[in-house]
Design a protein around this nucleic acid. Sequence first.
DNA 1: TCTGGGGTCCTAAAGCAA
DNA 2: TCTGTTGCTTTAGGACCC
Length: 456
Amino acid sequence: MDAFFASVEQASKPSLRGKAVVVGGLGPRGVVATASYEARVFGVHSAMPMGQARRLAPNAAYLVPRFGFYKAISERVMELLRALSPLVEPLSLDEAFVDLEAGGAAWDEQSARLVGAQLRADIRAVTGLTGSVGLAASKMLAKIASEQAKPDGLVVIEPGTERAMLGPMSVRTLPGVGPATGDHLRRAGITTIEEIVEAGEDEMVRLLGKSHGQGLYAMALARDDRPVVAEREAKSVSVEDTYDVDIHDRVRVGLEVQRLADRCVRRLRGAGLSGRTIVLKVRRYDFSTLTRSETLRGPTDDAGVIREAAARLLDSVDTTGGVRLLGVGVSGLADYTQEDLFAQAAGERTEAEGPLEEDAVAPAEEQPALAERRWAAGHDVRHAVFGHGWVQGSGLGRVTVRFETPGSEPGRVRTFRVGDPDLEPADPLPLVLSRHKESRGPEGGAGAVGMRSPAP
DNA sequence: TCTGGGGTCCTAAAGCAA
DNA sequence: TCTGTTGCTTTAGGACCC
């Protein structure tokens, strides 16, 4: 999907169409999750600190992500993909590989193009959003093709043309080459994919190690036979929080770790999982990050056990100077939900579990944050008189709401008191009227789509 | 107002067992 | 019994991806 989060917001908010929209964390330490193409013109891009984005595009609309809504839309798209083939491998909410050959949906360039075009139309009809399709003989190439196809396009890489196409491209095009590897290669005089080929496999292994070196060399030759894998099991579950200001108080750090442990356990149990290895993550005031882990004798999903392990791990960490982020994770996952056989690993474990189930009441000091969350920028609201709208901004005891819906004209803005009883949070409205196939548009969008090698 | 959150995979060192 | 090799597990960190 093209600029997925931002596109969803533009589709639900007519007044934002054609405008610069930035979705991401709005706190003092937020980063950009997605920028609309209009915002990218100003140089705003994913992972950029929000403050920098605001300097570059001060007049853009800044919105908090609505993951639940994006997930629901993503589900609809994934359904369309699964109708094409049982082999669908989601990479994220807005991207997936599809093995069209395995599904019998396509067997050559011609049939693949047809499927891709129809898919784009279907996605447009079902979600109202556009996206892009990349068609090629491997996952790597399909991914590159889909990048080229964005926004709102379809690109086919024809078998036999791969090497010539890749040759002049930057090494950074290859999946797995990020800033560090890119720099490493550049210092060795390698900036293009053909230079990887010229350097040879041995040199790549010498530079990057066996696994990475061999992998990249193969990619540079357009050799990639990784299969599309439908169900990949989770290998870890974790939660983490970055705090608006560094935490110095050691007691508070301990409390936060307990809260994170509880949240982690809730997620773990929600997925019906247990795990053996508990991981504590600490990012300090200077952004240095360290992890400490402990492996139990058997998997657990017990809040007391995981809390205690996290607390023990924290004991071994120096937090003087302040802490910017804390995280708790569990890996070494096992599938059973049973009461674990080894809970006594924490021998003297008391039932000091406290209020775990369901979010305990937020501490008083979080009340302002709570009010802001209730009126988070971009979230939907309903007013008893003016109807459905969304929060444009809030502060100083006021909320500004724009009253419009996906199908309406751009709407009017009104301001209310934060405590106005006529105003309440609302669920997002569907982006497309739930019609049947007849309302299918001529254009559409989709995620990255892969196709296995056609027979030679 | 410098740098989110949720993951995956790889490497290397150290301890231990065969 | 001593020494060396190999391999597995645990731990810590880093790179990368969306």
